Simulated assay, not measured.
Amino acid sequence: MKLEEFIANFEDIVMVDHGTINMETQLSDLEDWDSLSKASLLATFEEQFSLKLEDSALRNLQSFAEIVELIKDRLE
């Protein structure tokens, strides 16, 4: 998966318009960054990247860039 595809997928998860999310996006600014979206993101990690993480891995993340850091080695 390319970074652009992941961004679009993340935008769907947090229910924002495509083109909204960038590397500077603060997760606290996203109205729908909640437990359901975190569960969806963890499922995406497992399905798309064969990466199994616990929900605690997302708990302290502040920005979208930190999410990308978790999967950067698996992006095309």
Rank of each mutant, 00 (worst) to 15 (best):
Met1Ile: 03
Met1Asn: 02
Lys2Arg: 08
Lys2Leu: 06
Glu4Trp: 03
Glu5Arg: 13
Glu5Val: 11
Glu5Ile: 11
Glu5His: 13
Glu5Gly: 07
Phe6Arg: 01
Ile7Met: 07
Ala8Gly: 04
Phe10Arg: 03
Phe10Ala: 02
Glu11Lys: 11
Val14Tyr: 08
Val14Ile: 13
Met15Phe: 10
Val16Ile: 10
Val16Ala: 03
Asp17His: 07
His18Gly: 00
His18Ser: 12
Gly19Ser: 10
Thr20Cys: 09
Thr20Trp: 01
Ile21Ala: 06
Asn22Tyr: 04
Asn22Thr: 14
Met23Glu: 13
Met23His: 14
Glu24Asp: 15
Glu24Phe: 07
Thr25Tyr: 00
Gln26Gly: 05
Leu27Ser: 07
Leu27Gly: 05
Ser28Gly: 04
Ser28Pro: 02
Ser28Gln: 12
Ser28Asp: 13
Ser28Leu: 08
Asp29Ile: 06
Leu30Tyr: 10
Leu30Gln: 06
Glu31Leu: 13
Glu31Arg: 12
Glu31Tyr: 04
Glu31Gly: 00
Asp32His: 13
Asp32Arg: 08
Trp33Glu: 09
Trp33Leu: 09
Asp34Val: 13
Ser35Ala: 15
Ser35Glu: 15
Ser35Asp: 14
Leu36Pro: 00
Lys38Ile: 12
Lys38Thr: 03
Ala39Pro: 00
Ala39Met: 14
Ser40Ala: 08
Ser40Val: 00
Leu41Arg: 03
Leu41Glu: 02
Leu42Gln: 03
Leu42Cys: 06
Thr44Leu: 13
Phe45Lys: 00
Glu46Asn: 14
Glu46His: 13
Glu47Pro: 00
Gln48Tyr: 10
Phe49Pro: 00
Ser50Leu: 06
Glu54Asp: 12
Asp55Pro: 15
Asp55Cys: 09
Ser56Glu: 06
Ser56Trp: 02
Ser56Leu: 02
Ala57Gly: 03
Ala57Ile: 05
Leu58Val: 04
Arg59Gly: 09
Arg59Tyr: 15
Asn60Pro: 00
Leu61Thr: 12
Leu61Gln: 14
Leu61Asp: 09
Gln62Met: 06
Ser63Ala: 14
Phe64Cys: 05
Phe64Asp: 05
Phe64Lys: 02
Phe64Leu: 15
Ala65Thr: 06
Glu66Leu: 04
Glu66Met: 07
Ile67Pro: 04
Ile67Met: 08
Val68His: 08
Val68Ser: 10
Val68Leu: 15
Glu69Ile: 05
Glu69Gln: 15
Leu70Asp: 07
Ile71Ser: 07
Ile71Tyr: 06
Ile71Pro: 05
Lys72Leu: 11
Lys72Ser: 14
Lys72Gln: 15
Asp73Arg: 11
Arg74Gln: 10
Arg74Gly: 00
Glu76Val: 12
